[in-house]
Design a protein around this nucleic acid. Sequence first.
DNA 1: GGCGTGACTTATA
DNA 2: ATATAAGCCACGC
Length: 108
Amino acid sequence: MSDSAFERIYAVVRRIPRGKVASYGQIARLAGNPRWSRVVGYALHVNPDPETIPCYRVVTKEGRPSPAFAFGGFWEQVYLLQKDGVAFDEYGKVIMDQYQWRPDEQTL
DNA sequence: GGCGTGACTTATA
DNA sequence: ATATAAGCCACGC
């Protein structure tokens, strides 16, 4: 088992339930350090397993897809999220108050 | 083995 | 509200 930050990050992202989203900082914090936000972005950037790692469920703190999302585009991620049951407000942002993943409620 | 870069976040001015 | 600085890990040259 690798103690690498990547492994932990992937594990956290993989635990994101369907219909919910998580922010980089949130994942970074769950991964072990609140400043791994950049590492999270890089980890998803390499995205070795897009099938097990729903990077589209990862959004910025603003509840909006990453500014440099190279997966298909801003709206592509929005489409996938809506497909998961995530709703967006009039500002094109996810309603974090309702859809932000909360591990506390997932009974880890 | 060192330096720069990157899907970010937080704090300070 | 925007701008700047610092922090973290992994990869490429």
